[in-house]
C-alpha cells in the first residue's frame, strides 16, 4: 500500500492507477461471485457491491494498513479496497479452511485485522458503534489512525447510527462516517424510510460536518474523503459523507427488483462508475488506455486465481467447529 505522503495530493498517477485497479478488482470479483453463486457453488446468500466501487475505493485511497474500516453485509468491496487478499476472501465465501476467517464467517463476516478491516457485518448498523471503538483506541493511544465507517442508507434509521454519531462528536473521535446511499434498503426506498432529504443533513443534529457527494464519481469521493481524513487526523473530529450511489444488482442475488422501474435500472446502468473513471484518467492524461487494459488483464487473472485457490482448498476440519469460541476456556467448562 502507498505511503501516507504519497496520498496527500490530489490524484497522482500511481494513486489513480491504484484506484482503477481496486475498482476493477471489485467489479470482476463481484461478477465472478455472482456467476458462481448462480451455479450453486457458493453457500448461503451474497450481497454484491458492483456499481458502488467508487465509494470504497475513493475513501480507502487515503488509508493505510494502520487505519481501520468497519463494513456491512455488502462488504466485499470494502475488503478489497482495504487490500484484503482476494484468495483469502474467495476461499472464505466458499466456506473453505484457507479463507480469511477459516471459513467460519462467510461472505457477511470477512475480516482481516492486519489490514485494519474490522469485519463485514450481518447486522445493519452494527458497525457504526464499532467504528467509534477503534477511533477511541487511536485517540487514547495517541496514534494518528483514522477509522472509516461504511454503512448503507437503511442503516441511518437504526439507533446505532444516531448513538454512534453523537458519541463520535462529543468525544471528538477520528472517524469518517461514509453513508452509501444507493436509494434502497432491500426493497424499501430511502425516501420512504427516512425523514430527511439527505443523510448528510443528519450531521447537523450532532454538530459535525455533513457533505453530500456523487458516489458514482470516484474523484469526488476521493476529494471529500481526503478532507475528512485530514480533519480527523488533525484531531478535529468526525465527518459524515453521504455518497449517492447505485447498486447494479438486486439486494441479494435472486432479487427481482420490481421496486425499481425499468428506466431507473437502465439509465443508471449506463452511468457506469468504472467507465467514468476511465474517462477521467485518460482525459487527464493520468493513464493510457493501454495501461488500463493491462491492469484489467492482470486483475482478470488475479480473480481467476482466487477462484481456483478457493475451489482447490479443503473445507475446515471437524475440530474447527469448537475452536475459537474463546481465547481460553477450561475444556470441562460446562460448554458441552
Amino acid at each position: 500500500m502507498k505511503s501516507v505522503e504519497e496520498k496527500q495530493n490530489s490524484i497522482q498517477q500511481e494513486q489513480g492507477l491504484w484506484m482503477f485497479r481496486k475498482m476493477v478488482q471489485i467489479r470482476k470479483f463481484e461478477d465472478a461471485v455472482r456467476e458462481i453463486f448462480a451455479r450453486g457453488d457458493i453457500p448461503g446468500f451474497v450481497h454484491l457491491y458492483a456499481g458502488e466501487e467508487a465509494v470504497a475505493v475513493g475513501v480507502c485511497a487515503h488509508l493505510t494498513d494502520q487505519d481501520f474500516i468497519t463494513s456491512t453485509h455488502r462488504g466485499h468491496g470494502h475488503c478489497i479496497a482495504k487490500e484484503c487478499d482476494l484468495k483469502g476472501m474467495m476461499a472464505e465465501i466458499y466456506g473453505r479452511a484457507t479463507g480469511l476467517c477459516k471459513g467460519k464467517g462467510g461472505s457477511m463476516h470477512i475480516a482481516d485485522f492486519e489490514k485494519g478491516m474490522l469485519g463485514a457485518n450481518g447486522i445493519v448498523g452494527g458497525g457504526i458503534p464499532l467504528a467509534c471503538g477503534s477511533a477511541l483506541t487511536a485517540k487514547v493511544k495517541e496514534t494518528d489512525q483514522v477509522t472509516a465507517c461504511f454503512f448503507g442508507d437503511g442503516a441511518n434509521n437504526e439507533g446505532t447510527f444516531h448513538e454512534g454519531l453523537n458519541l463520535a462528536a462529543i468525544w471528538n473521535l477520528p472517524v469518517v462516517f461514509v453513508a452509501e446511499n444507493n436509494g434502497y434498503g432491500e426493497a424499501t426506498p430511502f425516501h420512504y424510510a427516512s425523514s430527511c432529504t439527505h443523510i448528510a443533513d443528519r450531521a447537523q443534529a450532532y454538530n459535525i460536518p455533513g457533505v453530500v457527494v456523487d458516489g458514482r464519481d470516484a474523484v469526488a469521493v476521493y476529494h471529500a474523503a481526503k478532507e475528512a481524513v485530514e480533519r480527523a487526523k488533525r484531531g478535529e473530529g468526525p465527518t459524515l459523507i453521504e455518497c449517492k450511489t447505485f447498486r447494479n444488482y438486486g439486494h441479494f442475488e435472486g432479487d427481482t427488483q420490481t421496486y425499481k422501474t425499468k428506466e431507473e435500472r437502465e439509465s443508471q446502468a449506463e452511468k457506469d462508475v468504472i467507465q467514468r473513471f476511465i474517462q477521467y484518467l485518460t482525459d487527464e492524461g493520468i493513464a493510457s488506455k493501454k495501461d488500463l487494459d493491462r491492469i484489467e488483464n492482470e486483475v482478470e487473472r488475479e480473480v481467476e486465481e482466487a477462484i481456483r485457490f478457493a475451489e482447490e482448498s479443503p473445507f475446515p476440519s471437524e475440530n474447527e467447529l469448537t475452536t475459537d469460541v474463546y481465547v481460553s476456556y477450561p475444556t470441562d467448562g460446562g460448554g458441552a
Partner: peptide, 20 residues
C-alpha cells in the same frame, strides 16, 4: 440425554454447520 448444538456460534462453512 440432551442432543443440542454445541456451545459455539453457528459456523458458516457447510461442513461445520452440518456438524453443528
Amino acid at each position: 440425554k440432551c442432543i443440542t448444538a454445541p456451545h459455539t456460534p453457528v459456523p458458516f462453512s457447510p461442513t461445520l454447520e452440518d456438524l453443528y
